[in-house]
Computed example of a mutant assay.
Amino acid sequence: MSLDNVVEDIRDEARARAEEIREDGEQRADEIIEEAEADAEELLEARETDVERQVEQEREQALSSAKLEAKQKRLEARRDVLQDVRGQVEDELASLSGDRRETLTRSLLDDAADEFDGGDVVVHGRAADKALIEDILEDYDGYAFGDSYDCLGGVVVESTQSRVRVNNTFDSVLEGVWEDNLKEVSSRLFDQ
């Protein structure tokens, strides 16, 4: 065998080995590409799932926020209506006149008088009701009209000998009735 043959055999072996290495490299490259594509697909699916979950979560938050805002607006509207109703009641109480006003004022004074056992008693009332209250006080011994009192009507009665003070104004009666019946008033107004 000649040197040329040996060289040619070595070259053939080197070419075969190079071809084998190249094929192994291409096969390994194909495997790496397949793994990378699979990883990319998994990553894409995971990202899509995350995005869908985030979109759903944001939608739920927006919906919840909108519901809360609507509920707050509804409560504000109800509160405004209740305030309007209360304002109308106050206006009607302030504008009561004649026998109706006298009957209510006398009744409130009678109830307050039960707390006092004689002595000098001072009765305060709305300035516009001074003449009415003074007429009613003619039926009570030791009772006199004092200073005017800022209210819708009714009386504030106090003893000059003790610290007893009874607030029987339309305002105080309305406050008690309003608080006691607010739920029913609300139910009637809003059909709950």
Results as ranks from 00 to 15, higher is better:
Y149A: 10
E52I: 03
G176P: 10
D150F: 00
D120V: 02
D191T: 15
S187N: 13
Q27Y: 02
S107D: 13
D9M: 10
I21N: 07
E34Y: 05
R79P: 01
Q72F: 14
S148Q: 12
Q161V: 10
D110T: 05
E26F: 14
L68R: 14
I33A: 03
R53D: 09
R59E: 04
E115I: 00
L75N: 06
L96E: 08
R28K: 14
V51G: 01
D171K: 09
V177R: 11
A112P: 00
Q192V: 12
F190E: 06
G87I: 04
R74N: 04
V55R: 05
T160P: 00
T49E: 13
V81Q: 04
D120I: 04
R17V: 05
S107R: 09
E179W: 14
Q57G: 05
D9Q: 12
I32V: 11
L3D: 10
Q61I: 15
D139S: 13
L75H: 05
E90T: 03
A46Y: 00
E138G: 02
V164P: 00
R78W: 07
E41Y: 06
A18K: 06
Q88W: 06
A14L: 12
N167S: 12
D30E: 15
G154T: 05
E175V: 07
A112G: 02
R47G: 04
V7R: 07
S162T: 14
E13D: 15
L63M: 09
E76S: 12
R15A: 08
I136D: 01
R86E: 15
S107M: 11
E184C: 01
Q54V: 01
D191I: 09
K130F: 06
L108V: 08
A127D: 14
A46H: 00
E8S: 15
Q72R: 11
Q83T: 15
L43F: 08
A94P: 02
L44V: 03
A144L: 09
I10E: 08
R106N: 05
D30P: 04
E69I: 12
V164M: 10
V173G: 01
H124C: 10
E115R: 01
Y149D: 12
V157Y: 02
L182W: 15
E175D: 15
D24C: 06
M1R: 09
E34G: 00
S187W: 07
V81D: 03
A131R: 12
T103V: 08
L82Q: 07
S186Q: 13
A131L: 09
V122C: 02
Q57K: 08
I10F: 03
L152H: 03
A144E: 15
R53Y: 01
C151Q: 08
F190M: 09
E13T: 13
Y143L: 05
D84I: 09
L44Q: 07
S148N: 14
A70G: 04
A14M: 11
I133N: 01
G154M: 00
L63Q: 11
E102C: 04
D139K: 03
Y143M: 08
D139A: 07
R28M: 08
S186N: 13
S187H: 10
D30L: 12
V173Y: 12
E115L: 00
R53H: 07
E8N: 13
A70Q: 12
N181M: 09
E158S: 02
D12G: 10
E115N: 02
R22I: 09
Y149L: 14
